[in-house]
């Protein structure tokens, strides 16, 4: 039986702009992945617990409000606290390029800014999964 890539798509923080999150969810599905969509206003705690219960291979988050430097690192910290080291964590949204090195240092594997083709995200996931 084929192993499916499972991706948790979440919007941490309070912004309600989920167009990007929904487009990427759909693109991942159309690429054959299983997408767990948790929607708006997710706390880092909810995202991490959901990812563990869902045994997600990937957590993909999007923020447009500017709260990324606060919220993305909280997710990777919580994962580390729970001893989870094999989940690929991705960020997207309106994120200034200056912030990307900081986020990568905090364990966000890649940050996809406005205008990123969905194909690029899909290829990145397929090439960088932390488990086979």
């Amino acid at each position: 039986m084929e192993k499916k890539i499972r991706v948790l798509v979440a919007k941490p923080g309070l912004d309600g702009h989920d167009r990007g999150a929904k487009v990427i969810a759909r693109a991942l599905r159309d690429d054959g992945m299983e997408v767990i969509y948790t929607g708006l206003r997710q706390t880092p705690e909810q995202i991490v617990d959901a990812a563990i219960q869902e045994d997600a291979d990937v957590i993909a988050m999007s923020i447009l409000s500017g709260a990324h430097n606060h919220l993305f690192p909280r997710v990777t910290e919580l994962l580390a606290d729970k001893g989870v080291d094999d989940v690929l964590v991705l960020g997207g949204g309106v994120i200034p390029e200056d912030d990307i090195p900081f986020l990568k240092g905090k364990g966000i594997a890649a940050v996809f800014g406005p205008g990123t083709p969905t194909k690029a995200t899909i290829e990145f996931i397929r090439a960088n999964l932390k488990r086979s």
Partner: peptide
């Protein structure tokens, strides 16, 4: 449901239950 065409799926039921996630 899984998509019969791609085998992928969007699983959205949990959205309504996320208050219990933690």
């Amino acid at each position: 449901p899984s998509s019969p065409f791609t085998g992928g799926a969007i699983l959205g039921d949990r959205l309504r239950m996320q208050d219990h996630a933690t």
